[in-house]
Computed example of a mutant assay.
Amino acid sequence: MTPPIIRHHSGPPATPPNNDNRIALILALLVHALLLAVLIVNLNWHTENPGPVQVQLWADGNSPVSPPPQPEPPKPEPKPQPEPEPEPQKQPEPAPAPPPTPEPQAQPKAEEVDPEIALQEAKKKREQEEQARQEAEAAKEKARLAEERKQAELKEKKRLEQERQAAEKAAAEKAAAEKAAADKAAADKAAAEKAAAEKKAKEDAAKKAAAEKAAAEKAAAEKAAAEKAAAAKAAAEKAAAAKAAAEKKAKEEAAKKAAADKALKDAFRNDALGAAGIPGGTADRNQAGGGNDSGYGAKVRACVQPGVAYPPPPRSGSNNPTAQYRVKLGSDGKVNGVTLTSSSGNAGFDRAVETGIRRCNPFPKPSTGRYEPIIDVVYRMYD
């Protein structure tokens, strides 16, 4: 800043100029006008419509005989649904107070002030006024932006609430639909099961009735056949009684002779086949697979015989039913497989022999100390 230049005059000092006072007054008025405009813009004006007014008219100052008809009062309009009260608006921040107007400095009592100094001071004041105006506009813009942001937040909150309610409603509808479908499926299943049970009960009842009818018819037929057979048998028995007595005597003589012949043949046969291990030998020495063990057949029979639950009938003649099995053994003597290679002709006897073989588990150990993998077991009913 250029220092003031002081000039000296020989005359009396001049009166200081009034330019600074006028500029300060103008600036003060501008700031007050700006504040008033801000208040007017942010102030909400609420106006109400005046109610209906009734007016009575008199003709020529004379009252009529009867008063004029009163107009019907207008029907009150339906009140609109009150909208949700908005949240109270945030009051805009007050504009910053203008900087205090600098008091006019006392002019030096010198004769005059340099005009350049006055211009610089006026420029500085204008800059201060412009800065105050910009700050006021910035505060107003800030308040406007805050209000817009608040309204946007309210709209977003309302939108999110609507979406949440819609999602809850959709979920409830979906759950209700799923429950209804599940209930319907359960009812259909129960109905189908009931129908199937009823159908099965009817079929079982029909089958039972048919079986009972067939059994009754079969029993009647069997009874008739039995009665007829009994009558025929009685007649045949009566006619064959004498013949049977004669035949019985002849059979007894023939049986005695056959027994004697068989005993003789067996004696010769046992003497010829008495060697150990020869197929067809006696029961106590004839099990192929015993190696050189002459008594292995007797060991096998002693092991198998307790498990053969078949009481042999009385022997007639030289017939001796024989069942032959091939037995697979493990290294520990346990039975791994039994195969019928020759049947005795009696299925019951064959099954009894197989049961006895399977119950002989493990097989007797040969004297050689090693089990053969395959053993042929020959079992005769009367040996």
Rank of each mutant, 00 (worst) to 15 (best):
E87Q: 14
I117Q: 04
S63K: 05
E77Y: 02
P82R: 14
E77N: 02
L34A: 13
P92L: 10
Q128K: 06
N62M: 07
Q91F: 08
N49D: 09
L119C: 05
E93W: 08
P52L: 02
E48V: 12
N49P: 01
V38R: 14
A138D: 07
E85W: 06
A33V: 02
I40R: 15
W58T: 07
I40Y: 11
V65Q: 04
E111S: 04
W58C: 01
E85S: 09
E130K: 05
P50D: 08
G61S: 01
Q128V: 08
L57V: 05
V65E: 03
E48C: 02
A106H: 01
T101W: 01
Q89R: 15
V31T: 05
V41I: 13
W45P: 01
P96Y: 07
E93L: 12
I117L: 11
E48I: 09
L39D: 11
K75Q: 03
K75W: 00
L57F: 06
L57R: 05
E85H: 08
R133F: 10
P84A: 11
I117C: 00
P64S: 01
E130T: 02
T101S: 06
H46L: 14
A132R: 05
A139I: 02
P69Q: 00
L36H: 12
H46P: 01
P76Q: 02
A33D: 06
P78Y: 02
R126M: 07
Q91G: 02
E77Q: 10
P102Q: 12
Q107L: 12
E83N: 05
E83F: 08
V53T: 04
D60V: 00
I40Q: 13
A37S: 11
E48M: 09
P80L: 07
V53I: 09
Q89I: 15
E121P: 00
E103P: 04
E141Y: 04
A37W: 10
E93I: 14
E111I: 10
K79F: 06
L35E: 15
P82K: 14
W58F: 09
V65H: 02
V113M: 04
P98L: 12
P80A: 10
N44A: 12
T101R: 03
P50Y: 08
P82W: 09
Q131E: 04
K90S: 09
E135L: 10
T47G: 09
V41F: 14
Q89E: 15
K75E: 02
P100A: 15
S66I: 01
L39M: 08
P115C: 03
A106G: 01
L36T: 12
E103K: 12
P86R: 15
H46Q: 13
L34W: 07
K75L: 05
E137C: 02
V38Q: 13
E77C: 00
P50F: 11
D114N: 09
P94Y: 06
Q120P: 00
P108V: 03
E116Y: 09
E85K: 15
E48L: 13
P115R: 07
I40E: 10
P108N: 03
E111V: 10
Q120T: 08
I40V: 13
P73V: 01
V113L: 10
H32L: 12
